[in-house]
Amino acid sequence: MELKSLIRDIPDFPQQGIMFRDITTLLKNPQGLRYTIDTLTQKCRDRNLLPDYIVGMESRGFVFAPLLAYQLNAGFIPVRKPGKLPAAVHHIEYELEYGTDRLEIHQDALEAGAKVLVVDDLIATGGTAKATAELLAKMGAKILGFAFVIELTGLNGRQMLPNLPIISLMEY
């Protein structure tokens, strides 16, 4: 299946000069969604990326991570923006192109030594994925790798995650 045919391109969103890769058209296609999850699952199994937990980054990582967790018989753990988790959290602040952002995870989300796979819909600059990895490492997690549906290769996000396996289903 040609997944790129299920991705809608929206020019100049969210700002002038940006080509937004809209996954909602993929999500509404039952065969496309099934193919995406089945392919991610098989690639994880082929590379022996068999985690205790799948960590999904807010917000579109929440779409793919629980489905992949189900397929791999793993738990799902959300990493969220500030103020959205009800219990005590660990947090990390990280740099964006214009300012900073913050990610949070429940302090009791996982035990030290737990094997995790980080999942999101897209990797661009790699800043959010790197911050998530740093947050998980501070908690003592063993990061097996990353899985993305889309990789924007021109933004070199992969370079932010050296020495870790990265799965991406399509590149732009």
Score class of each variant (00 low, 15 high):
residue 109 A to K: 03
residue 129 A to K: 07
residue 35 Y to K: 00
residue 94 Y to M: 12
residue 119 V to N: 04
residue 51 P to Q: 08
residue 110 L to F: 07
residue 92 I to W: 03
residue 98 Y to H: 12
residue 144 L to V: 04
residue 44 C to D: 08
residue 99 G to E: 09
residue 45 R to H: 12
residue 106 H to F: 07
residue 30 P to I: 12
residue 33 L to N: 05
residue 73 N to G: 10
residue 38 D to S: 13
residue 111 E to Y: 05
residue 46 D to R: 11
residue 124 A to M: 05
residue 59 S to D: 09
residue 144 L to N: 01
residue 104 E to Y: 10
residue 31 Q to W: 13
residue 59 S to A: 15
residue 117 L to K: 01
residue 107 Q to R: 14
residue 72 L to T: 09
residue 90 H to E: 15
residue 35 Y to H: 14
residue 75 G to Q: 12
residue 126 G to M: 01
residue 129 A to L: 10
residue 61 G to S: 08
residue 56 G to S: 08
residue 128 T to A: 07
residue 120 D to Q: 06
residue 132 T to Q: 02
residue 144 L to C: 00
residue 126 G to D: 02
residue 87 A to E: 12
residue 74 A to D: 09
residue 67 L to E: 10
residue 142 K to G: 04
residue 91 H to K: 14
residue 113 G to E: 11
residue 100 T to D: 13
residue 127 G to W: 02
residue 105 I to S: 04
residue 71 Q to D: 14
residue 90 H to Q: 14
residue 126 G to F: 01
residue 78 P to A: 04
residue 30 P to E: 15
residue 89 V to T: 15
residue 142 K to E: 15
residue 95 E to M: 09
residue 127 G to Y: 01
residue 140 G to Q: 06
residue 84 K to F: 07
residue 90 H to F: 12
residue 107 Q to P: 00
residue 127 G to H: 02
residue 46 D to V: 08
residue 97 E to W: 09
residue 98 Y to T: 05
residue 69 A to G: 13
residue 26 L to R: 06
residue 50 L to H: 11
residue 140 G to K: 02
residue 141 A to H: 01
residue 129 A to D: 01
residue 86 P to C: 10
residue 47 R to A: 15
residue 33 L to G: 08
residue 40 L to T: 09
residue 130 K to M: 07
residue 104 E to R: 12
residue 36 T to I: 06
residue 111 E to D: 01
residue 127 G to S: 05
residue 110 L to G: 01
residue 110 L to P: 00
residue 32 G to F: 09
residue 93 E to F: 10
residue 92 I to H: 03
residue 32 G to Q: 11
residue 99 G to C: 09
residue 117 L to V: 08
residue 34 R to F: 13
residue 129 A to C: 04
residue 110 L to H: 05
residue 27 L to Y: 12
residue 62 F to S: 00
residue 60 R to W: 00
residue 27 L to M: 14
residue 96 L to C: 08
residue 39 T to A: 10
residue 92 I to L: 06
residue 84 K to V: 12
residue 80 R to H: 09
residue 87 A to R: 15
residue 106 H to L: 12
residue 105 I to N: 03
residue 83 G to T: 10
residue 74 A to N: 10
residue 34 R to N: 14
residue 124 A to K: 03
residue 26 L to I: 10
residue 75 G to E: 11
residue 40 L to F: 03
residue 119 V to W: 05
residue 80 R to P: 06
residue 78 P to T: 08
residue 142 K to A: 12
residue 91 H to S: 15
residue 59 S to Q: 05
residue 53 Y to D: 02
residue 52 D to I: 00
residue 121 D to G: 07
residue 82 P to Y: 05
residue 98 Y to A: 07
residue 125 T to I: 05
residue 87 A to G: 07
residue 104 E to C: 10
residue 60 R to F: 02
residue 116 V to C: 05
